[in-house]
Design a binder for these strands. Structure first.
Lengths: 199, 199
DNA sequence: GGTCATTGACTGACTAGTCAGTCAGTTTCG
DNA sequence: CGAAACTGACTGACTAGTCAGTCAATGACC
């Protein structure tokens, strides 16, 4: 049972980190903030993770595992619906504050990736994972005849991902509510509708 | 001359800030770093700007003025060329390190905008400015018959801007050289070529 | 069954370092 | 001279990481 308990504590630390990030953001995040959310001492965090960086790398890994689970869930839906769900996943949080705060914190963290190789590696993994997900959806759509067959799934994946990522970032940093949704609509109008419509 | 000198010193501070940002990034930037680049004392910075935040707000303003100048320069070129130049401006720095480092620092700064209203205001101004620039290009293209007339310039501007911004951010944070150029190519293939080609 | 050793989880007090901002003064220059 | 530009020494607030030690649970041994 000790093994489980150790995992429990680490799980609790990850969840406390999530809450602390939402509340304070990444730049202002202190080990004390996480400890407060956990209702344990700061020393405990250092007992489980040598450094703050180690803890946060573990946190990104934790997020990736969650994404992988979610991805497996709706892998069986029809491509058009999967694509729509995926795109909407970005626009999410019309006013769901928690999620917006979290995305902002994640952007702050991402902005440190150029200086921290461990972050960069995890984020590169996440980039591959998301792009592969889109590629799979597009390939499935082409195979089933729902999508036009003369498009390159890799190119589309890159385009869709960059666009929605940029839209979400601009919305978050400008605090302008409708930004991401407006870009999503433009993405559909000028790109995705053409691809989805039968040839 | 005092007025000019004051401007001179402030100009020098802005340039030193630019260099310091490139070298250290935003998160790690200290007033001392800027003072070192300026070859003056840290106290002098506080003589001209009350706080670090004030200095950086002035720096964003300085950048905006530079962009406005540059924008005015090639306002007379044909729309297709202006659009291409604009998009390429994002992709810039295939390996021009200075510029990449600067964009990373700017991303770090942008990631603090949700917490700092003064940053947010300046960035909102910059967003409007860039989008208006694209809108103007597209409108000019429609008027001259070079672009398709059934597109909404505002939508296109939003789409192009979000896409290229996202691409540049992903390239910078993942340290993957070809990312932005690949997205640019996809953007042309699936969006811009359709718009530019005569109807 | 009771005592003793061991271990993992956890804490509080501490250190060492960083950095924005202050202030009392000096230099420069018109 | 007088004002603006500029400096160096200093402070106070803050924070990651350390360390000696507490406590409860587990297990070993007689």
């Amino acid at each position: 049972m000790t093994g489980t308990e150790r995992t429990d504590t680490r799980q609790a630390i990850m969840e406390a980190t999530y809450r602390a990030l939402c509340e304070h953001g990444y730049a202002a995040l202190t080990m004390q903030d996480i400890a407060d959310e956990l209702d344990k001492s700061k020393s405990l965090l250092h007992y489980h993770f040598d450094t703050k960086e180690d803890l946060l790398v573990a946190f990104i890994e934790f997020l990736l595992e969650e994404f992988e689970e979610k991805r497996a869930e709706n892998a069986e839906a029809p491509p058009e619906k999967r694509l729509e769900e995926f795109v909407d996943w970005f626009v999410f949080a019309p006013e769901e504050d928690d999620r917006t705060a979290f995305h902002i914190a994640l952007l702050e963290l991402r902005s440190q990736a150029p200086y921290t190789e461990a972050y960069r590696e995890q984020l590169a993994r996440s980039d591959r994972l998301v792009r592969e997900t889109i590629v799979e959806i597009v390939e499935a759509g082409i195979e089933s005849g729902e999508f036009r067959s003369d498009v390159d799934p890799e190119s589309i994946a890159r385009l869709v991902f960059a666009t929605m990522d940029g839209a979400r970032i601009r919305q978050a940093t400008l605090a302008e509510a409708g930004y991401a949704a407006a870009v999503r609509d433009a993405l559909y109008e000028y790109v995705l509708d053409d691809i989805v419509s039968a040839e």
